[in-house]
């Protein structure tokens, strides 16, 4: 189906943290993303919505090059971070991933103590001295509201924590490396409503100092946490608009059907 995008130019390149230009991504024969051009605003929370298989997760994973290792991966077009291509040899992949952090669908703690989990990235990027690790861990756990729950077991395994606590730990870990952008791939899909609300308010508090890009199937969540929304359909960007406009006055027939629950 031809999507015939009606995207609005919301952000000038100068106000954008990440820009995709004619980005096409495929795996083997299948083309997953087709010719995406979009500017993701600096200091905004951008939601990516669309039916399953519409390419929104692939787009998210293109922004920190997590697709690179998937077999059959091919790419055309360009993505820039603060004006600099993320694909050139000048862009250090490890540095890109420090600047563009990620939180996954399900919590994925590392097999090390809770404290070591929080500072794992700090250690890898040599961002602090060993004697500072304790303070960093405490500060980040406090930031995500987990410190009181785990302060007596910082040396213990994270796998005894509940799923929601594990996801908060992963958020603390992602924040510890001081990213400019945080990519969230359905971060609350495995969480209970109370923890979901907590994660949502934490995300809301990150903006504008951190730009947030969040994939979600939960349209209520998209409206609660984001101020700009990209509507994907069939590998194309059907509409890019302010969240308010997209949900109240959608420009594209597909987004109009999707937000009213008629497709997807």
């Amino acid at each position: 189906m031809a999507v015939a995008p009606t995207s609005t130019a919301l952000n000038e390149p100068a106000d954008s943290v990440l820009c995709a230009k004619n980005l096409t991504v495929g795996f083997g024969e299948a083309t997953i993303l087709n010719d995406i051009t979009v500017n993701i605003g600096r200091g905004h929370a951008t939601a990516l919505i669309g039916p399953t298989g519409s390419g929104k997760s692939t787009f998210l994973r293109a922004l920190n090059r997590m697709n690179d290792r998937v077999s059959g991966y091919r790419r055309n077009g360009e993505v820039t971070l603060e004006g600099e291509s993320i694909f050139t040899s000048g862009m250090d992949l490890l540095d890109l991933r420090r600047k563009v952090g990620m939180l996954f669908q399900r919590p994925n703690p590392f097999p090390m103590s809770i404290r070591d989990n929080v500072v794992a990235g700090v250690k890898a990027h040599r961002m602090a001295k060993r004697h500072q690790f304790n303070d960093i861990a405490e500060a980040r756990l406090t930031q995500v509201g987990l410190f009181d729950a785990v302060k007596d077991r910082l040396n213990k395994s994270p796998f005894q924590l509940s799923g929601g606590q594990q996801q908060l730990l992963c958020l603390a870990r992602a924040l510890a490396v001081e990213p400019d952008v945080l990519l969230l791939d359905e971060p609350t899909s495995s969480l209970d409503p109370v923890t979901t609300e907590r994660v949502e308010s934490l995300i809301a508090n990150l903006v504008p100092s951190i730009s947030v890009v969040i994939v979600t199937h939960n349209l209520g969540q998209a409206q609660r946490v984001s101020d700009q929304t990209m509507m994907f359909f069939d590998g194309e960007l059907a509409e890019f608009n302010t969240t308010k406009e997209l949900f109240t006055n959608p420009q594209h027939p597909l987004s109009s059907q999707y937000v009213r629950g008629h497709i997807g």
Partner: peptide, 10 residues
């Protein structure tokens, strides 16, 4: 998923 988490952390 856990290995990807480490990779995504740089």
């Amino acid at each position: 998923l856990n290995q990807e988490g480490a990779r995504a952390l740089g």
